[in-house]
Design a protein around this nucleic acid. Sequence first.
DNA 1: GATGCTAACGGCACTGCGTGCCAACAGCAA
DNA 2: TTGCTGTTGGCACGCAGTGCCGTTAGCATC
Lengths: 250, 250
Amino acid sequence: MPEGNSNGSRSRAGRTEGGRRRLRSALAVAALDLFASKGYDATTVEDIVEGVGVGRRTFFRYFRSKEEVVFPDHDERLAEVVEELERSDADASPMRVVCRAAETVLETYLAEPEISLKRFELTRQVSSLRDREIVSIDRYQRVFARYLRRCYADGPNADLRASVTAATVVATHNHVLRRWLKSGGEIDAHGALRAALDDAGIVDREPSGASGGAGESENDVVIGVLRTSAPAETVRRRIESALREFPGSG
Amino acid sequence: MPEGNSNGSRSRAGRTEGGRRRLRSALAVAALDLFASKGYDATTVEDIVEGVGVGRRTFFRYFRSKEEVVFPDHDERLAEVVEELERSDADASPMRVVCRAAETVLETYLAEPEISLKRFELTRQVSSLRDREIVSIDRYQRVFARYLRRCYADGPNADLRASVTAATVVATHNHVLRRWLKSGGEIDAHGALRAALDDAGIVDREPSGASGGAGESENDVVIGVLRTSAPAETVRRRIESALREFPGSG
DNA sequence: GATGCTAACGGCACTGCGTGCCAACAGCAA
DNA sequence: TTGCTGTTGGCACGCAGTGCCGTTAGCATC
């Protein structure tokens, strides 16, 4: 009789389906409450499960680690982004696709502001959680880079261009997210992201009339930045780099 | 008599100064050897200290954790970069300073190729070590961004520009480092970094004659990239962004 | 040479995370 | 009732990392 539980009444009811998500949620809520009240390090898994009335072993069946309870279903989120990239229109500008994906990521934070803000507070205080978040952000960046690398596959310096572009988009996303978090979720994050992507020199908006063909490009003005004293190779590279921003040329 | 050590003869010699570094090095070597031979996870701290003939407790006096033995004196390296940025010429182009710093970081890898390559092999196999490296790379990026933020302090969008530039430089550095590691340390990493920074559209080279003054800028040609259908605000931003690349205008 | 001080080391015990294993139990089908 | 499956709790275990204390080497001092 392993029912030697000091906790008398517990709904040991069979959780075939919906019960699992309820319990998972209950564990997460209890954990975050404790983390906020007595600190992350001072909170043991024992403390968490005690409040929910469940065994310590069960906790690790719902979360791989104590840290994961702070970033639940992060894998699913990442998988969603991967899927979004994979099913993206092959004709669309890769830059635009990635920017959309960044917007999707931002959306996951905006969808539940109170949780995001609470997590932000936690990650600010606990270094191990901060590190964990850095790692998950890097996962997104990797996924972006992989997608872009495929798009650029035939061009020169595909790998470098993909890495740099992914880094730029992610850095911009993080900048906006940070501002949103620091504002307590007040500012218009979507608008800020659009503006920031624009400021960062990334083409996000679809050109007004054209759909990516080369026919309308006569209206475009190409401007680059270089010195007349620069070597010819540099000039070539810079112009190539500039041309990449136009759809249909990548 | 807690000298109940099964290990009979051990040089319990007094290590006042040089002995510390020797022991630290011996521990690191023993650890890396074991990691390579029987795997990181399968190697316990007990195993490591056993070969060196030292107590388990002592290991943690030399390394804060089992992971740190793979990335020794990473904090010092970071501190060196911070110092390099702080004592940089205030008149120099911030972009150039950061690129130099990235070169310094690359140099720390090139200085001891066999260790870097061994560590690369380890981080490829062990996810926790990979995560750890991602975090330390992010530390550099943060330091770069902080420096650039100060330089851009008076300009518009200083924070965003600093973050994006830092991300770009770091991504470029990582790209080159990765290629160097994958080549087994064969390729010319320095040259590759210069070329990559150039490809990524970053101004690294000092202009041939001028020293950053405005007097010589008549020789410069300003070229940007935008669409004629873009709103006026976008045009203004893009031109501003282009002008930033010239020394004396940031 | 005896004494005291400091720094490093070894060992021990302890906390806490994460895991493997097993018995118990609910739900369902035959 | 019997068998099968999935979930749970408890238990034991390995291991990382820490606090504590006794011991020892090295050095200065009397």
